[in-house]
Design a protein around this nucleic acid. Structure first.
Length: 478
RNA sequence: CGGGGUGUGGCUCAGGUGGUAGAGCGCUUGGUUCGGGACCAAGAGGCCGCAAGUUCAAGUCUUGUCACUCCGACCA
């Protein structure tokens, strides 16, 4: 304890106050900073670097599956936003409006995009004429604005960064296939790039996207047991196509409506990384999205040969394709250890006179603090394995936390008690009626996160005891 | 949008009954240090969130306002 108290700027322990711990990490790891606009954050270089890596990981996957990037305007005319009834109703309460250009009041006010379905639809109506124009597999990397009342860095900000994919297809089957393919893509991305296990499935009627026929979701469990909706993929059927008149001539020269999808993952995923992997010493980053994968700390750098050897080591590691930083500042080594742990750097290499004498360095892995003496000649062979192992440990630990905290219950009292007392998810049958979801939310604050398959009539709804239709994962969510 | 909390150097905070602002950390410079957040010395840095009001006099009292933060209702 006394050691901890000597720390210049310790963060709030995770188990003492989870949300304070979370904001402490955001600030101390220099991911972001509050801006003067309430509810908006400034992404600082380190936070932005993480986002860049996330975008690059996802973008590669989108490109591989045939998608191309575009850019839609920032503004949506009010009349355009209103074309699809459910869609407007869903977003109206949280849109920001532009009413003036200079001193002049606009004849039609413009909404700052909260999402771009209407813009894509308007454009698709313009450019799609024939079956030869399909499918359209578009994506865009932009920020959107939703005038949120309660905001938290990354998890809920008024402006946030994301990708939104919007596709148009000739048939319903093809559109549904796209919807589910993206869902799998997200699942795989979360697993291999972020080391975050997710549950995937369909949203209930009341939780689905405004204007969608079906919404599919990937849900992650944070360290405190709460759910984070980590990505969604929507099947629109031809609802938007009819509202926006997006038609094409098929092979028989018959006019048909297109079938559409949309899907997104946002900068909220950074919040997920923090809350799944972070610990009391700060951030823990999965190697794929760590801006610095290896940090080299020279010990006693003023002594002969130390810095030279450190630079040599840096070159070696860099040439092998790793993102590496050598901190040759005049901070104390202990300070640097703590600093890069705060920033979640996966591997630290300590290099001092004693190591150099033995032609080795000390490698320390961020998640378990394990120290390994590595011969300098072997560092390049050892690093990939260390990073890989670290990634696997992060995933395995998170997977264990997830699966061990999903509780199967079948009666109402146990249901309420479990949600109240045990952090995590509850799996219980549901009849499919929205009023049962409302009751669950009113009493427990938990919501249906996703539908985890259908069940036979032998199951009864955990709320109303009528025959159940679905097995549902319930939980409190961010 | 409701309830609570907080606004004083970059950060954390101290400033009984009003009398014109302080500490620690951080920062700068020089030196000694360097295997878990070093030490010494010398510096820089503040119209006390903002606006009215009371007063000879306001960081301190009154009112208003704004911002941030936490907890609830709504959402990625």
């Amino acid at each position: 304890m006394s050691k901890k108290q000597k720390m210049v700027e310790a963060i709030t322990p995770r188990d003492e106050d989870f949300s304070r711990w979370y904001t402490d990490i955001c600030m101390r790891a220099e991911l972001c900073s509050y801006s003067t606009v309430r509810g908006c954050v400034i992404l600082r270089p380190y936070g932005y670097a993480i986002w860049e890596l996330i975008t690059s990981e996802l973008d590669q996957r989108f490109k591989k599956t045939g998608h191309v990037n575009v850019m839609m305007p920032l503004f949506i005319p009010e009349s355009l936003l209103q074309k699809e009834k459910d869609h407007v109703e869903g977003f109206a309460p949280e849109v920001a409006w532009v009413t003036h250009g200079g001193d002049e009041e606009l004849t039609e006010r413009l909404c700052v995009r909260p999402t771009s379905e209407t813009l894509f639809c308007d454009h698709y109506a313009d450019v799609i004429e024939s079956w030869r124009d399909l499918p359209k597999l578009y994506n865009q990397w932009v920020s959107v604005v939703r005038w949120e009342k309660t905001t938290r860095p990354f998890l809920r900000t008024r402006e946030f960064f994301w990708q939104e994919g919007h596709t148009a297809h000739a048939t319903a089957e093809e559109a549904m296939k796209e919807t589910l393919m993206i869902l799998e893509l997200y699942e795989e991305f979360y697993k291999s790039a972020l080391a975050i296990p997710v549950l995937s499935g369909e949203k209930s009627e009341s939780e689905k996207f405004a204007g969608a026929v079906n919404t599919y979701t990937v849900e992650a469990m944070m360290h405190d047991g709460k759910a984070l909706q980590a990505g969604t993929s929507h099947y629109f059927g031809d609802g938007f196509a009819k509202a926006f008149n997006i038609q094409f001539a098929d092979r028989d020269n018959q006019l048909q409506y297109v079938h559409q999808t949309s899907w997104g993952v946002s900068s909220r995923s950074i919040g997920g990384i923090i809350m799944v992997h972070g610990d009391d010493d700060g951030l823990v980053l999965p190697p794929a999205v760590a801006p610095i994968q290896v940090v080299i700390i020279p010990i006693a750098p003023h002594k002969d040969g130390v810095l030279e050897e450190a630079f040599r080591l840096k070159k070696t590691v860099e040439n092998a394709g790793f993102r590496v930083k050598l901190d040759d500042s005049d901070r104390m080594p202990g300070w640097k250890f703590a600093e890069y742990e705060m920033k979640g750097v996966p591997i630290r290499l300590e290099l001092g006179p004693r190591d150099i004498e033995k032609r080795s360095c000390v490698a320390v892995t961020r998640d378990n603090r394990e120290k390994t003496v590595v011969p300098l000649d072997h560092i390049v062979e050892v690093l990939p394995e260390m990073l890989d192992d670290l990634n696997n440990r992060l995933y395995e630990n998170a997977y264990e936390r997830l699966t061990s905290r999903i509780y199967d219950v079948s009666d109402w009292d146990t249901f309420v008690q479990t949600i109240d007392e045990k952090p995590g998810f509850v799996r219980a049958p549901w009849c499919g009626e929205p009023e049962c979801e409302v009751k669950v939310k009113d009493i427990t604050k938990a919501t249906s996160r996703l539908i985890d398959g259908d069940v036979g009539a032998s199951h009864r709804c955990v709320v109303c005891d009528r025959p159940a239709l679905h097995m549902v994962i319930w939980g409190k969510a961010y």
